[in-house]
Nucleic acid binder design. Structure first.
Lengths: 127, 127
DNA sequence: CTAAAGGGTAGAGTATGCTCTAAGGTCAAC
DNA sequence: GTTGACCTTAGAGCATACTCTACCCTTTAG
């Protein structure tokens, strides 16, 4: 497919798609005779994955490392497995920390709700 | 305490500390007669929190919103509670997505480990 | 054949979040 | 009173990740 279709199907700006390609995130792009890019179906999924990982706080560099290992045709298996383990550990750490933040936010929410209820007729917050 | 001590105790560059203050992340800083900043003990904890949230993928803008609500002396209680609920929901979404990523990485790790084991004497990966 | 739509590259511009430099004021010790 | 270690501000510089502009080529429809 051409870049306009990939842009439309992923919602990602064509300039950004070319930028991702330069950054090594989309390696399966071929050129046709007219020098136009020709993306395979898989590219839609791959771009979606890049965007998801990005939203979760990974840098493009980290995303490329993971994608490279997932392709796993140039890298050594044990090395790839180790990288996956390392990235998984980082993700699991992040999950643990986020759970703490979630708990903290929940507690704060309840505190504020209690204050709000207690002051429902008194007026403003600030006990 | 002076900026050097806060810098030392948090490990955060003094330029960054001043940058955070300008960005509204440290509002409890007072000035002494000589115009030097005077940070309260609490600042150490607050800076740590900023760094933690940052590492988890929050922008400084988002962090400020949460910290502002936590201070909760200018904001309405119900409004604050709603903001907390909203941020908590976002964090919980992030946790769910990260769990999926963790699972995916774990599966890939196992696949690569299996390949590595199968080929322990055959030589390189790439079945 | 030509106009419009789509593609290509190079490179400039923007936002965020630092990080550092320059120029200068303050303070404690000698 | 001067040295050196501290502090101040303003603003430059840098990395990342886009986002857009300028300019030119290709394809398709009339």
């Amino acid at each position: 497919m051409q870049i306009a279709e990939l842009e439309h199907r992923t919602g990602v700006n064509r300039h950004t798609l070319r930028y991702y390609e330069k950054a090594g995130l989309l390696q399966e792009v071929v050129r046709r005779g007219n020098n136009y890019r020709d993306y395979p179906e898989k590219a839609v999924e791959r771009v979606a994955m890049v965007r998801q990982l990005k939203a979760l706080g990974f840098s493009l560099r980290e995303i490329r490392e993971v994608l490279d290992a997932l392709r796993s045709d140039s890298i050594d298996c044990e090395q790839g497995a180790a990288l996956m383990a390392e990235k998984k550990a980082a993700v699991d750490d992040k999950i643990r920390e986020l759970k703490q933040v979630s708990q903290m936010l929940g507690a704060e929410q309840q505190r504020l709700e209690a204050s709000a209820a207690a002051l429902r007729e008194a007026g403003r917050c600030k006990e």
